[in-house]
């Protein structure tokens, strides 16, 4: 339960780590958009290659990036299978009873699988190289124009930071309360649905009580440290766009343009 790799930050000092988080965030979104552009193999390989270069630039172990894909493997398999079995256009490669597997089906399946994998690996790369707090900071600053429409972006970001900070603590606490109630003979594993829901009461009530206690403690701690909302607040970590960031943005935009162009020049397989 505690070993969730998705959304975990791995400190480092690589090119990717040092990038302006705002730029990194926007470029990640652009990349996710970009993997859906290619309709030919060259373009798709280009998108994969771009990701591979980004992984190398992050100096993170490749294994880690592969691990981030693990949770979505079932999704990839299911969507691939659906495409393989339901796309009936194109030349048949295998036919038996009601099953027709066609070239078109296989191609569509591979495209979708590769796109999902790129999407997940790409966004994991963002969370691996950016601390959650920096991420929320970046979001706060990206969304700050919304202040005009009276949205308190600072408070939103603060809430996200605190949520991120307390998730591991609460997971640990849940583990502990479950053990404690099991020691009193609570039966969490058997019975019908209603019984199971009722069995959760001894877990959920203490969890709520402790969350309120923590919230009140934290509020005191924040007040003691002169917290008064976003007004007049500065930040230790400044976000500065450097030449490297502008260059990266240019590269990503060029890649997107190239992917579009390839769709015109190469016959689509999709």
């Amino acid at each position: 339960m505690r070993d969730i790799a998705l959304g975990q930050y791995f400190p480092g000092n690589s090119f990717l780590h040092r990038m302006d988080p705002r730029v990194k965030m926007v470029l990640t979104f652009l990349y996710i958009f970009a993997v859906f552009i290619p309709r030919n193999w060259v373009g798709l390989c280009g998108a994969v290659a771009f990701l591979a270069i980004a992984v190398l630039l992050s100096k993170l172990p490749v294994k880690l990036v592969l691990k981030s894909i693990k949770p979505v493997i079932p999704l990839v398999l299911i969507t691939s299978a659906l495409n393989i079995f339901y796309v009936s256009e194109g030349t048949a490669v295998f036919e038996w009873w009601v099953i027709h597997i066609t070239t078109k089906g296989l191609i569509t399946a591979s495209f979708i699988a590769i796109r999902i994998i790129c999407l997940i690996a790409g966004s994991s790369l963002l969370t691996y190289t950016t601390s959650p707090t920096t991420l929320t900071d970046a979001l706060e600053r990206l969304l700050s124009p919304l202040k005009i429409v009276r949205l308190d972006v600072h408070e939103l970001a603060m809430m996200m930071t605190i949520a991120l900070r307390f998730i591991p603590t609460l997971i640990e606490e849940t583990d502990k309360i479950m053990s404690a109630q099991k020691a009193r003979g609570a039966d969490l594993e058997s019975g019908g649905p209603m019984q199971r829901i009722r069995a959760l009461v001894p877990i959920v009530v203490p969890l709520f009580v402790s969350s309120f206690r923590r919230a009140s403690d934290l509020a005191t701690a924040m007040e003691c440290r002169c917290y008064r909302g976003g007004m007049g607040r500065t930040r230790m970590k400044q976000m500065k766009m450097r030449a490297a960031d502008i260059l990266s943005a240019a590269v990503v935009l060029a890649v997107i343009a190239a992917l579009f162009a390839l769709n015109f020049f190469i016959r689509p397989v999709l």
């Binding site: 606490e173 309360i177 404690a180 009461v201 001894p202 009530v205 203490p206 009580v209």
Partner: peptide, 8 residues
């Protein structure tokens, strides 16, 4: 430890 946290 801190068994009072399991009262419900």
């Amino acid at each position: 430890q801190y068994p009072e946290h399991q009262l419900f």
